[in-house]
């Protein structure tokens, strides 16, 4: 009897341990499944975006022809008698903002990046970097306010005929917004250039500017170009600043002193007035959204190609 009790105690211990191990295994599996699901959510989000954009755009092209959308020069989808669905006015609006912002962010950002990587003493860097981060962190809507109250009045001094809402002010503030991005990516690309390259150039008697311009920048070129593309892609998708600053008049023009409308501003404008599903305004924002997605996605892919080149050692 005694031995039996002893054995049963062992048995109990074994079953206890077994059930504990089983509990652990179940927990282990549950956690794994949960984390797998979390990782899958990011894919579901992308698939969801593409699916929603495409599926809601299909009914739009029952109203408008694809050819008219991609070639038309007039955008008035809500016109009662003669609705027209040419997306070019909105595209040109976005194009003006993008190019204009690039004129600000690319030269300034590159020079700031060079300064940070090659010139700035560490004390200056410690102050400059957080300030640039702060600039990058200012919400888009705030830049819209600046365009309205600061940039446009300043531009009016130079160009008296400029309209109160105009593409130029929008482009300039979007340039300010994307400047920190260009600066920090350029700094990274420049810092990644092997020191041996520039030291060899110094050894041959080059000046600092010659080393930077002829040796360092060409070696860092792919990263630098990637930063430019990313900044431009950000500008294409920029919404609030241009909605506030640049106006809401779709215009087939490249005149930056006029009020215009970007693709993003049109989406915001149609969304504001509580639209119903199936409404032409609802359908057109998805057509514009799909175009916007395709443009920015392509730009980002190209930028990633350039970035990947940076990792490779120079031959």
């Amino acid at each position: 009897m005694a031995t039996l009790g002893f054995e049963s105690k062992i048995g109990e211990k074994i079953t206890n341990a077994a059930s504990k191990a089983m509990g652990r295994a179940i927990r282990e599996n549950a956690v794994r499944t949960f984390c797998f699901f979390c990782a899958a959510v990011s894919i579901i989000a992308t698939v969801g975006i593409v699916y929603v954009l495409v599926s809601e755009t299909v009914p739009f092209f029952k109203e408008a022809s694809l050819i008219e959308f991609l070639t038309g020069r007039t955008w008035q989808p809500t016109h009662i008698n003669t609705p027209q669905y040419g997306v070019w006015p909105l595209l040109m609006g976005s194009l003006m903002i993008t190019i204009g912002s690039g004129l600000v962010s690319i030269p300034l950002g590159l020079l700031v990046g060079i300064y940070l990587a090659e010139y700035a003493p560490s004390g200056v860097r410690k102050v400059l970097k957080p300030l640039l981060e702060l600039l990058a962190g200012i919400p888009s809507v705030v830049f819209g306010y600046f365009a309205l109250t600061l940039i446009t009045p300043a531009l009016k001094n130079v160009i008296p005929g400029i309209s109160p809402l105009n593409a130029a002010a929008g482009a300039i503030v979007v340039g300010f917004m994307t400047l920190p991005l260009v600066a920090s990516l350029c700094e990274d690309a420049i810092s990644a250039v092997p020191k041996a390259l520039s030291e060899a150039a110094y050894g041959l008697g080059s000046t600092k500017a010659e080393v930077i311009i002829k040796i360092v920048l060409p070696s860092a070129l792919s990263g630098i170009v990637a930063s430019f593309i990313l900044a431009l892609s950000r500008a294409v998708g920029e919404t609030m600043a241009v909605t506030i600053a640049a106006g809401a008049t779709p215009r087939f023009t490249l005149d930056p002193t006029k009020d215009i409308m970007t693709m993003t501003a049109q989406i915001v404008n149609f969304s504001k007035g509580d639209i119903d599903r199936g409404d032409i305004r609802y359908l057109s924002i998805f057509a514009i959204g799909l175009l916007l997605f395709v443009i920015t996605f392509t730009m980002n892919l190209v930028a990633q190609r350039f970035v990947r080149k940076v990792g490779r050692p120079a031959k």
Partner: peptide
């Protein structure tokens, strides 16, 4: 393949304009 796909996907998702997320939210 799954982790590689997720990694690429996260990088791409980070570059999608914020307003497009709004459109996903609107429909979904």
């Amino acid at each position: 393949w799954f982790t590689r796909f997720v990694r690429i996907n996260i990088a791409n998702l980070a570059g999608v304009p914020s307003i497009v997320f709004g459109m996903l939210g609107l429909t979904l």
